[in-house]
């Protein structure tokens, strides 16, 4: 028996039973999505997929396979964004087998066609899995970039005094970013005092301390003095027990203390109005 004949016969069968299969398939999928997508939308998506599957099976045109993959990718990406698990998406595709099986169960002569068909549906299901993983990775890397941009603001506290409130873990990539931004701001604003606030840094280990020291000495090379503020009691304990030395770098408990110190060094005094 020729393979092409098999899929063509399957295509013909699917075309003949279009409404029944799509109807049953939609029912199965709608039960799975639990209200996260409307019934009409599911029906429309599946209708498109079904038509494409039939076109691929009939082998009539060369573009059908590409279009089917694209449609599947689109569906999987949409599902990933809507918070579906990859299993749910794949099961949605696999339930086409169930829908068709219920129809062909009685006709024994269609067994080879059905087996070939299930193999194809399996491939399609796996394809959604792959796309899901790719989409997820894309989302994660986008978020990481967004976080990197969000997390390194340099703010001006006073004339000649700037602050860098650090939030989150300090790795070498972020240190580099913070350092560049801090130094650029120092040059651009002509500030000669910088406060690095580490209230939002969860843990300070030797590596983080090393990064902080580097930033401070780079700022010093530009002629700016740095103060490290926001040292929490636990962090202070860790720093001491690790034997980290901040040398002659001024450290303060709060940003306010650091600002007071910077103002004093700039020869300014805060008096009650």
């Amino acid at each position: 028996m020729d393979v092409d004949d098999t899929s063509e016969r399957m295509a013909a069968y699917l075309r003949d039973h279009h409404d029944k299969v799509v109807g049953r398939w939609s029912e199965l999928v709608v039960a799975g999505v639990r209200g996260r997508t409307s019934r009409e939308e599911v029906q429309r998506e599946l209708e498109d997929l079904y038509t494409l599957i039939v076109r691929v099976l009939s082998g009539a045109d060369d573009h059908a396979a590409g279009e089917l993959t694209a449609a599947l990718d689109e569906l999987s990406r949409g599902r990933a964004r809507d918070g579906f698990t990859p299993s749910e998406t794949a099961l949605g595709v696999f339930s086409l087998k169930e829908a068709v099986y219920e129809l062909v169960a009685d006709s024994a002569e269609l067994v080879p066609e059905y087996v070939a068909f299930t193999r194809m549906v399996d491939d399609l299901g796996l394809r959604t899995f792959e796309t899901y993983a790719v989409t997820r990775e894309q989302i994660i890397s986008d978020q990481a970039t967004a976080m990197l941009e969000l997390s390194t603001p340099v703010v001006r506290l006073w004339d000649g005094i700037i602050a860098v409130p650090l939030v989150g873990t300090l790795d070498s990539v972020r240190t580099q970013l913070v350092m560049e931004k801090l130094l650029d701001t120092l040059v651009a604003t002509g500030a000669d005092h910088a406060v690095i606030d580490i209230t939002g840094v969860p843990t300070v280990d030797t590596e983080v301390a090393q990064h902080l020291l580097k930033t401070v000495s780079a700022a010093r090379l530009l002629g700016a003095e740095c103060t490290i503020s926001g040292i929490r009691p636990q962090v202070a304990q860790t720093i001491v027990s690790l034997g980290i030395e901040f040398g002659d770098i001024a450290t303060k408990a709060t940003l306010a203390d650091a600002l007071a110190l910077a103002l004093r060094q700039a020869g300014l005094k805060v008096v009650p109005a």
């Binding site: 580099q176 350092m179 560049e180 130094l183 650029d184 120092l186 040059v187 002509g190 500030a191 000669d192 580097k214 000495s217 780079a218 700022a219 010093r220 090379l221 530009l222 002629g223 700016a224």
Partner: peptide
């Protein structure tokens, strides 16, 4: 020492040179 560029400061720090004995200013 005045007018050091940020990139130069980063390089010197990475090289572990802190230029002891030389004072620095922004401009």
């Amino acid at each position: 020492l005045v007018g050091m560029r940020p990139a130069v400061a980063i390089t010197l720090t990475e090289l572990g040179l802190s230029l002891g004995g030389v004072r620095t200013a922004l401009n």
